[in-house]
Amino acid sequence: MSAPGAEALPAALQFEHVDAAYGRFRALFDVSFTVPSGSVTALLGPNGAGKSTVARVATGLVPSTAGRILVSGRDVTHQPAWKITRLGVAHAPEGRPVFASLDVEDNLRLTFLSQLSRKEAADALERAYARFPRLAERRSQLAGTLSGGEQRMLALARVLVVPPRLLVVDELTLGLAPRMVDEVYRALRDIRDAGTSLLVVEQQIPRALELAEFVLVLRKGRLVQARPASELSAGLAEEILSVPAAPVDGSS
């Protein structure tokens, strides 16, 4: 539905007429889009539009109630989350997705060891610490006692260090200090260059548009826009999201 897929590679992620619901509450209505292989797609929209639901459905955390979901051309519609993960899909959910009662190192080891050999996992651990020195300092601390931003770093380290085929990041920079936001975006660029496709849910629209090639806009559970990012300036994006264009300044 979105970008014209002229390439030979199958799309990294494809939604075909997907509905989803939480019990009695319906959250997605007939959502169709494509994340082309090797590209970065930003998913924008106001809170409550269903962005996180798209991310959760893509990685199997929430089941779809209708439609088809394809990852690299394979139908994964009713697959459990762990099988989708094994296809090379990584998901950094919103909030603080860490094992609070495990220490930082065990948090990372759990992910790395399930995908890599012991030696590779040890390498990955070193790279994670190199990328996030803060985590190295706290490696034997329980993740639950980290600050909110540090927990966010830990969640990102889990998915950024070993480049997956498709990375889904939800509320990427939530609660991160400006310096960390820069570093996270640098890391995203690196893994994009390494060949990873990305689906990025982000509140900071200008930031998202710097990186993204395609933009999806959700509102009230429906997809209302799908177009190349080049056609969408930050101003236009905010307009689509029905937001006053002027940022809050000191005088207001």
């Binding site: 929209g45 809170n47 919103e94 509320e171 939530l174 609660g175 509140q203 937001v243 006053p244």
Partner: peptide, 20 residues
Amino acid sequence: DEPSSGLDSNETTALAAVLT
């Protein structure tokens, strides 16, 4: 404590107004 964290731009504007 980080009142605007996770808010969309609509909500951030509303929050700033309330704080004023």
